[in-house]
């Protein structure tokens, strides 16, 4: 019981402080609306069709981007990680592509491909591929030699080795990579939506509410929704990891 009450108390305390700050007038009127105003606005927005469509647009693009990224990065990581020549050769290229901040590509991709949903999905995929690719390659090096020796001693066939030993072996790291990818992809999606007119989504909603109308209550309500999405997917994946990858603690960095 105590375990679930204290976090709630913490959140309540934080909201109370925000309420006081918001009502104290230390920030100009309307710049920092108190939580009571934001939450009421959020409730109103959740009943509004256009807002819900924005949320759905973001979530859908996000899921598509993650699926594409996983479909690219995991097989590529397995291939690169298991062939030393490829691993070494492609390593340099990957090392130079990875640090390019994905949002820096926004202006470029927009002028080349326009501002449709394809653009933001492409950018999110680009951002999501690297953590997954890296964790998969790294994970292959972390599989216990003795485990592989055991499999070899029993004459396990290659496909079976991949399916029943290698894949479960890299799973904890891949899931950790997926969590990292998910949060980066969301950042890139929202950034793109904010910067590209007519791309839809929560990011666009926040941008319009902030720049056009100056409605900080709507900005914060939108931010809250984005945060809840991020929190939900992270908690969901952590739960998945605990449930299905029972044998190993989260691999790699979270």
């Amino acid at each position: 019981m105590r375990g679930s009450i204290r976090p709630l108390l913490g959140v309540a305390g934080f909201l109370a402080v925000c309420e006081i700050v918001g009502r104290s007038g230390s920030a100009p009127q309307g710049y920092l609306p108190p939580p009571s105003v934001v939450l009421v606005e959020l409730a109103r927005l959740l009943g509004e069709r256009t807002f819900l469509l924005d949320v759905i647009a973001t979530v859908l693009s996000w899921l598509i981007a993650l699926a594409i990224a996983a479909a690219i990065a995991v097989p590529a990581g397995l291939l690169l990680g298991s062939v030393p020549f490829l691993r070494n050769a492609v390593g340099a290229v990957v090392e130079f592509l990875r640090p390019i901040p994905s949002v820096a590509l926004i202006p470029l991709v927009v002028v080349i491909a326009g501002g449709g949903p394809g653009t933001k999905i492409f950018l999110a995929v680009y951002a999501a591929v690297w953590p997954l690719l890296f964790n998969t390659i790294y994970a292959l090096g972390e599989i216990d030699d003795q485990l592989l020796d055991s499999a070899r001693a029993f004459n396990i066939s290659r496909p079976e080795l991949l399916l029943r030993v290698t894949l479960p072996g890299v799973a904890p790291f891949v899931l950790t990579g997926l969590r990292l990818s998910a949060s980066t992809a969301l950042i890139v999606l929202i950034s793109t939506e904010m910067l590209v007119p007519a791309s839809g989504g929560i990011g666009h909603f926040i941008y319009l509410a902030g720049s056009g109308a100056g409605r900080m209550d709507q900005v914060l309500a939108g931010t809250l929704v984005a945060g809840l999405l991020g929190y939900a997917i992270n908690a969901g994946m952590a739960g998945m990891q605990r449930r299905w990858v029972t044998w190993a603690p989260a691999g790699g960095t979270t």
Binding site: Q146, L147, D149, S150, A153, R164, V165, P168, V245, W247
Partner: peptide, 17 residues
């Protein structure tokens, strides 16, 4: 084909999943 090995370190030779 018809050979089996038992290693010292059971925690590293059984497949945890």
């Amino acid at each position: 084909e018809d050979l089996a090995v038992v290693f010292q370190d059971y925690s590293r030779s059984l497949f945890p999943w």
